[in-house]
Design a protein around this nucleic acid. Structure first.
Length: 532
RNA sequence: AGGGGUGUCGCCAAGCGGUAAGGCACUGGAUUUUGAUUCCAGCAUUCCAAGGUUCAAAUCCUUGCACCCCUGCCA
């Protein structure tokens, strides 16, 4: 299955328009990357540069010093690396400023750009609207000589912020508003994160981006749909600045996901208002959030392949993202036992000092390979795995019932105790003789299998159970996006590695990279067809 | 005086005049010491709508309709 970008590339390769492919990922370093950016990175890197044996640049589009910071540069580089994309080079648009300035001078010399001292508000008014043609600026027909001088003065810092701009001279009556003499340069006396105070005029996106692409030999400049209206201007700059061979722009639909938000503004609010723990909160759709949540780079890449690339606005069901990591972890993750809501069970037909080490197959890939799990006369099971008044189809422990303990014995109900709130606080059970896992000759058939943890040989664990950031409408915050459970787990979990496990019947969990104690983040649940 | 895009299953998405791929979700059923996994089966007589061209239309034409983007000295 191909996508329209591949069609274009293959046509270009076959027709000889281009000999090899060069793409780029051009973020502005003004925030953290999220899964929508991952879609773009995967498209530009894996989907084109790698697939067609071309080149890929990571380029910071740092043409607006008011918004950009080195902190973001660092995190973006890290995230791109995490996703496995290997740019042949990391570039900065700001390194091209001198060339851009020369391009601007060239436009002035051609009579295609002019310096305008009309106030911003006035320019806006004179631009007209969808139903009204714009009005030419009084500065539109100034001489080339005068424009050259004024533009030079702009660069020299002779004017204040907003006092003048350089504008392209195109068509104030164009139905495409981007053609109504767009601003090419504005004055900003702000220190740039890399250029510091070298410049006080900064190029605008439409002008700069074409030049950046040209300078890197980008053959296919792939961006999102909202830039479609800018493409004529992109081409205008290439032609009039004589950038040959000219790069070409193509647009695809940005990613939307159900049950979360992707807009920088919204995500920043969540961070600023401490609704989440930070940009790397495991609920965030940021790359760092997904990583901390337990999403692997390959699962994100798989997701990006599965969603496809098209021009249709769409919202992908987050279940698809989940299925990608679930499938990978199902194949890879070590299994272990942990109890989120512990209920104590006493084995009445064993001594106080009874202890046994039982075999446990801990990884689906390593068939037959086992490690030992501890079992004694006192264990924890999940609260939900014992029920006095079970719904139909319930396959766990019930009054007078029996259930298999995974990897251990079948236990049979003996009695239970209830606390002052009416909650079951203790169950007594007995081991069914000859029911040991792997050598069961008891003849007793248990309805189901449940997991457990040896109460005398376990560790305390905090489980962080994440839910979607947004409610079903996608408009309101999900108030229950995080619940915390204090439970128990096997001793093997007490280690420093950041490792993902499948806790049997509970889902996939990864040790939280930021917490000191034993804290596990729920990556994603198992499928559950039981609706009891 | 408006312009630029997009409409194929619940959600993505192939399809490019020869009779609707695939994934996710969902529903059965089999196997299972994870209500998981795996396996097998089902899931668009129809492609936004209505006309037209054709032996043949999701694909071509016409006319509508719906949704998205555009009036920053943001990117």
């Amino acid at each position: 299955m191909g996508n329209f970008i591949e069609d274009i590339i293959e046509n270009d390769l076959n027709s000889g328009r281009v000999k090899s492919i060069v793409t780029r990922f051009p973020p502005e370093p003004n925030g953290y990357l999220h899964i929508g950016h991952a879609k773009s990175i995967c498209l530009n890197y894996y989907g084109t540069a790698v697939k067609y044996n071309g080149k890929f640049f990571l380029r910071f589009d740092d043409t607006n010093p008011a918004k950009e910071e080195d902190e973001y540069v660092k995190s973006i580089i890290e995230d791109v690396k995490f996703l496995g994309a290997q740019p042949i080079e990391i570039r900065f648009a700001s390194d091209y400023f001198e060339f851009m300035f020369e391009c601007a001078v060239k436009l002035i010399n051609k009579g295609l750009a002019y310096v305008d001292d009309t106030p911003a508000e006035e320019i806006k008014k004179m631009r007209g609207d969808f139903n009204t043609s714009g009005i030419n600026s009084k500065n539109r027909d100034k001489s080339i000589k005068e424009n050259l001088m004024l533009f030079s003065d702009m660069r020299e810092g002779k004017y204040k912020d907003g006092q003048m701009v350089l504008r392209a001279k195109i068509d104030m009556s164009s139905p495409n508003i981007n053609f109504r003499d767009p601003v090419l340069y504005r004055i900003m006396h702000i220190s740039h994160h890399r250029q510091k105070d070298k410049w006080c005029i900064y190029p605008m996106y439409d002008f700069a981006h074409t030049i950046e692409d040209f300078l890197e030999g980008i053959t296919h400049s792939i961006c999102t749909l909202e830039f479609e209206n800018h493409r004529p201007l992109y081409d205008w700059v290439a032609i009039n600045c004589e950038l040959t061979p000219a790069p070409n722009q193509y647009e695809f639909a940005r990613l939307n996901l159900t049950r979360t938000v992707m807009s920088k503004r919204h995500l920043k609010n969540l961070v600023d208002n401490k609704v989440v723990d930070g940009w790397d909160d495991p609920r965030m759709p940021t790359i760092q959030g997904l990583k901390r949540r337990g999403y692997t780079a390959s699962s994100i890449k798989t997701f990006c392949e599965k969603i496809g690339v098209s021009k249709a606005n769409s919202t992908v069901d987050i279940a698809l993202l989940e299925s990608c990591i679930r499938q990978e972890l199902n194949d890879e993750a070590d299994r272990a036992m942990a109890v989120l809501e512990p209920l104590r069970v006493e084995i009445v037909n064993r001594d106080k000092d009874f202890n046994e080490q039982l075999d446990f197959e801990y990884n689906p890939k390593l068939e037959g390979k086992i490690r030992k799990i501890s079992f004694s006369n006192e264990i924890y099971i999940e609260k939900d795995d014992f029920c006095i008044d079970p719904p139909t189809g319930y396959k766990r422990l019930t009054v007078d019932g029996a259930v298999r303990l995974k990897g251990a014995y079948i236990i049979k109900y003996v009695s239970h105790e209830v606390d002052k709130n009416g909650q079951v606080c203790l169950v007594r059970a007995e081991i069914v003789s000859n029911s040991k896992s792997g050598s069961d000759t008891s003849g007793v058939k248990a309805k189901g299998v449940i997991h457990f943890v040896d109460a005398k040989n376990c560790v305390d664990i905090e489980f962080r159970l994440y839910n979607y950031l947004m409610d079903e409408s996608g408009e309101k915050l999900n108030e229950q996006s995080l619940t915390v459970a204090k439970g128990k787990g096997e001793r093997v979990l007490e280690c420093d590695d950041i490792k993902t496990y499948q806790f049997l019947r509970n889902g996939y969990f990864i040790k939280d990279s930021k917490s000191k104690g034993l804290v596990f983040n729920k990556v994603v649940g198992l499928k559950d067809s039981f609706n009891g």
